[in-house]
């Protein structure tokens, strides 16, 4: 198998590109006797998702809700405590499936910090040629690929190939990071706050480029961001997380046009108004997100939810399909015992 050719589509357009089932990651909390407190951060708890071929799946949620942990689990930078993954029909890291190395070739990641992710001692050309060379591409072909990659991300190869990271602006460095993610011709790119550190005028350039690359190369994106407007702009479907759990998942139209979960609603109406004559009068919810070390029992949002009732503290709401979207809230589960729920 030539590791440098684009991977063939295997299961056809209807087969999800990536399926994750019951992913869990708990981090031990240092401290206490012998440096082990016995407590854990429940960063990601039994999370399942699927990514369709050619779509952009947006992931939103507040700081610490587990977005980056999900990303790192999906490319196996960290090992899940539990859960399985399937890439275009092939189980990952299982006897009859594909290896983690193969997963990491087909799924690439771009991080927020454009500087830290580039080796300061390598020129841009050396950085971009590194992985293709390691996969056995001859030097002359690697040079051609570097030129092609720089062209693709809008950097003139003549001008940029020989530069070092510190000789680039933040926007240019992020273009290089994207070029590097493309170097092995992946199918899925996970963008974790990839435009968040950029100035707005530069962010717009990079967003336009991401849209173009996706069409040109037939890519699939997972786009993680705390910027709800940018997620709305790019995504086909959106996943909303709160304290390690999915609270709502649906089409971008459903999530932004008709949000069902009280947290999604709060998050959307917490966006600053762009209309000076209609400024926000009241914050949609009070207080800070609770500590993920000891998340609230039952529904993790209950400590800030204006609709919380007894059942919310006792029973964890399942992620239930409501038609246009899936929602984890007792108000949407018939017969849950919540006064606003339909009769069973």
């Amino acid at each position: 198998m030539d590791a440098l050719m684009p991977r063939e589509d295997r299961g056809g357009p209807a087969q999800p590109l990536l399926l994750a089932q019951g992913l869990r990651k708990h981090f031990p909390v240092p401290g206490g006797l012998l440096g082990r407190s016995g407590k854990v951060v429940r960063a990601v708890d039994d999370l399942s998702l699927s990514v369709a071929k050619g779509e952009t799946l947006g992931v939103v949620g507040e700081s610490g809700c587990g977005k980056s942990t999900v990303a790192r689990l999906l490319i196996r930078l960290i090992k899940p405590d539990r859960g399985t993954m399937v890439l275009d029909g092939d189980p990952v890291d299982e006897p009859h499936g594909i290896t983690i190395n193969e997963l990491r070739r087909q799924v690439q990641m771009v991080f927020q910090d454009s500087y830290a992710s580039l080796n300061p001692r390598l020129t841009i050309a050396e950085t971009l040629a590194f992985a293709p060379r390691a996969h056995g591409l001859p030097a002359s072909e690697a040079r051609a690929r570097v030129r092609d990659l720089l062209d693709k991300v809008g950097l003139d190869p003549e001008n940029y190939a020989g530069r070092y990271p510190h000789e680039l602006s933040g926007g240019q460095r992020q273009r290089v990071n994207i070029a590097r993610a493309l170097a092995l011709r992946p199918r899925l790119i996970i963008l974790d706050e990839a435009v968040s550190a950029l100035d707005k005028s530069v962010e717009a350039q990079v967003l336009n480029m991401l849209v173009d690359l996706k069409t040109e190369l037939g890519l699939t994106y997972i786009f993680i961001s705390h910027d709800l407007n940018v997620v709305q702009y790019l995504s086909d479907r959106v996943l909303v997380m709160y304290l390690g759990k999915i609270v709502e998942l649906g089409s971008v139209e459903a999530i932004y046009g008709n949000p069902q979960h009280p947290y999604t609603r709060a998050l959307l109406s917490a966006r600053p108004s762009m209309e000076p004559r209609r400024r926000t009068k009241e914050a949609p919810i009070q207080g800070d997100p609770p500590n993920p070390i000891d998340p609230p029992s039952g529904c993790r949002f209950r400590t800030r939810c204006p609709f919380a009732e007894d059942v919310c503290a006792r029973v964890e709401p399942p992620l239930a399909d409501t038609g246009a979207q899936a929602v984890a809230c007792h108000m949407r589960v018939a017969g849950s015992g919540h006064s606003k729920a339909a009769a069973p």
Partner: peptide
């Protein structure tokens, strides 16, 4: 104007963003 136009907000989905070329 460029700053306002390049700031993504509601209702820009599917449109090409009007980015300001270059850098400060």
């Amino acid at each position: 104007r460029g700053l306002l136009a390049s700031t993504v907000h509601d209702g820009m989905r599917g449109q090409r963003l009007e980015a300001i070329p270059g850098a400060p």
